[in-house]
Design a protein around this nucleic acid. Structure first.
Lengths: 173, 173
DNA sequence: GGGCACATGTAAGCTGTTACATGATTAA
DNA sequence: TTAATCATGTAACAGCTTACATGTGCCC
């Protein structure tokens, strides 16, 4: 595929747990070509900007071997910073109403995510070329679904707490 | 508190959704002091390394105002890269057994997290100084708990799928 | 007296994003 | 014809981590 298509695929299929920008993709493709991990089909790197004919890349045997090598390396679990939870942690300074707004927005996003996962499931089911990959791809979708449902459940619980806090604050003034 | 204590607090209390390294904390404290957002109590920045007497910092009124200003700004929801899900997405190249190992490890980490959250809950309940903050702090703990429980449920479901895949692969050879 | 937790800072470097520049092709 | 999408790339820079340097105080 083209570099542009790589980015679209990452955004649409891996979007809920991965992202890459053009600033990473194009230099990386060039580097992978130099080291023989991918094969370029189409015009060579022009050095010029703008379009000539799109260059399509395919992974080579050597590239696939390197992929397997990298996949086998342990994933270091990185802490994910959550701007939402940081705001809620300081919620006393923000006030219950503002916190409710944040939680409601988060709940809505999680619901949208659930709808998106339904779409992705349909896409994966329809893609016959990826049949052997299907069960693995579905594992990642299921992870997203579980996370999104947990977010909705947490939001509902939290909104009840915040309602109570808002009522207390309202009555004390 | 001291810069060292700030880091310990972030690690122990916000650890499941935030992190800061010394490389961020010390320069930031110096900058906050310059702009009057925190008040240093104890020896001035020596420029020298090593310890003299620990310097303790306290937030000023101006610093608190700035905190509220920052909290009110919208949190841009960043995509969290998951090395685990990336590996599972390419699970066909990794094999069912290796995937099972990854999922089992993830499940174990989630269980450890649940135990940790129980500790944090106890700490928060015992801290009388933070009584007004308590409900907000508990919201962030609840978020962690929901996420961890979802991870365990997803792992159990996924392990059943992977068992089936491993059996199929075993029988076809 | 040895090791660990407490404590402070700097510098190098890595990762990744954003913004910009450029232009072809296609659908409205 | 005009806007959107496809397409390729570079450069600046933001953010953050790691490694290093340096020491104190306390407990075993």
């Amino acid at each position: 595929m083209t570099g542009y298509a790589v980015r679209a695929a990452i955004r649409d299929v891996l979007g809920h747990f991965w992202s890459e920008s053009f600033g990473q993709i194009y230099p990386t493709l060039a580097e992978l070509e130099r080291s023989g991990k991918v094969q370029r089909e189409g015009p060579a790197t022009s050095g010029t900007v703008g379009r000539t004919r799109p260059a399509k890349f395919a992974v080579t045997e050597s590239g696939l071997a390197r992929l397997r090598e990298l996949l086998a390396q342990p994933a270091r679990p990185a802490v994910t910073r959550s701007g939402l939870l940081l705001r809620l942690f300081f919620g006393r300074h923000l006030g219950p109403a503002a916190c409710q707004k944040l939680v409601i927005e988060t709940r809505a996003r999680a619901q949208e995510q659930l709808a998106h996962y339904a779409d992705v499931r349909a896409q994966i089911a329809a893609d016959e070329a990826g049949e052997a990959d299907r069960p693995y791809w579905l594992l990642t979708v299921a992870a997203g679904e579980h996370a999104a449902r947990a977010t909705v459940a947490w939001a509902d619980e939290s909104l009840r707490t915040l309602d109570r806090l808002a009522a207390e604050q309202g009555s004390s003034r």
